[in-house]
Design a protein around this nucleic acid. Structure first.
Lengths: 212, 212
DNA sequence: CGAGATCTTGACGCGTATCAAGTTCTGTGG
DNA sequence: CCACAGAACTTGATACGCGTCAAGATCTCG
């Protein structure tokens, strides 16, 4: 879709192949309504999940209500593995979501695959760190849109499963700033908004340049 | 040293035990002078390192010179594993540093241990994300000092191996802001500065509260 | 002892947060 | 199918925290 992989290509596209890992064997499939908790902070880490349809957010709340969304997980992606025995974050379904659920035992027999997933999780968190630590609001949104469109298959048209609040808490901004940046990108025709959740990337190159 | 582990304890102390993993077998030991590159962005990922003495920073530069320090690694800690074949970040010795070097083969025989390290790396990056995404300058410094003191053995007196610039680039701030926050914490007697790099934590509880 | 690097401090400006309306979307019941 | 209510989103005015620029102090090391 976009430019072929260049030496300095920063998308995680090459790495996404490892997200295709299928851990075989029988497993549950569970459905969660929008907003429903999948696991809580403090819960035992004894399962691993794969999104079948829908989307998931993994977050932490501070005492005063500030929230950080640490990651989003889309169809095909796995989550729920963490260091230690207890979850340090909680996970919620964003939209109505179906998840494949793996027990701890079957996962332990696949520590090689799990290693790749953990390394991918680390890479994602580190890329995210760079975005939040050193980029301004427009750059953050651009990085977010590029990442999302890549993970959704490189389509120009992206249907956002998450709200402005989710995006804001993911990018370390406020909803108002997210909204203003969207407007600015629309005014520059970098994107088009069919409705608030349906984004068309009109100038992928401009968007990529904004990410650095 | 500080309070015993509470239910909601957010330090990564419990997890640090996994950082004690020793991958046995013969390996090189290499010495790097302060500022020396250990691996570059784009280099093949074919080694893994353990800090014997000294300290390491792992970073990325943006085109315009902005830098994000993604992680620091202190004595005993391992680094150098990444998703994919190429390093997406570069690593440098902060002070004169001695590293144990492991080849790819010996590491692959320890994917179980490597999994724990990757999960710890992911956890650290995610905690860092929360700090940078949702906390103000004082809170960031407090979180940094708590983390560092914990990793250095929970001592009250901390000798910083890194410069203000390193700290600023780690926390998504500027050197001036880091300096001002240090001064403010000193004025409140939360810390004492024997010299710019030697910090005594005078009020650990106050510091912990600042982290949320 | 001197020179460059590192750190601190001050004055000012900018980008994003905050506060406050107003508008549009979504889903539900009539 | 329409009416309505609440949620979600947008937009504007203002405030404030941190960045920027500039100068000066302190540290480090040859």
């Amino acid at each position: 879709m976009f430019a072929a992989t260049r030496p300095a290509d920063r998308s995680l596209a090459e790495l996404d192949t490892v997200a295709d890992i299928r851990i075989p064997g029988p497993h549950l499939v569970a459905t969660y309504k929008a907003g429903k908790e999948i696991y809580a902070e403090g819960d035992n880490v004894d399962k691993c999940y794969q999104v079948v349809v829908g989307a998931v957010r993994v977050c932490r709340l501070l005492a005063d209500g500030r929230r950080q969304v640490v990651s989003f997980h889309l169809a095909g992606e796995m989550f729920g593995f963490e260091a230690g025995n207890k979850h340090r974050f909680f996970a919620e379904a964003i939209t109505e979501t179906r998840l494949g659920v793996f027990g701890r035992r079957p996962m332990q027999e696949h520590s090689r695959e799990l290693l790749d997933l953990a390394l991918l999780g680390m890479a994602r968190a580190q890329e995210h760190l760079l975005v939040i630590g050193r980029q301004c609001a427009v750059e953050r949104m651009a990085a977010f849109l590029m990442d999302l469109s890549g993970r959704l298959g490189g389509l120009r048209q992206v249907k956002l499963p998450m709200s402005r609040q989710d995006i804001a808490d993911y990018l370390g901004l406020t909803i108002e700033t997210v909204s203003r940046v969207m407007t600015k990108l629309r005014e520059r025709s970098v994107i088009a908004l069919h409705d608030a959740r349906t984004i068309e990337i009109r100038k992928p190159d401009a968007l990529r340049q904004l990410c650095n």
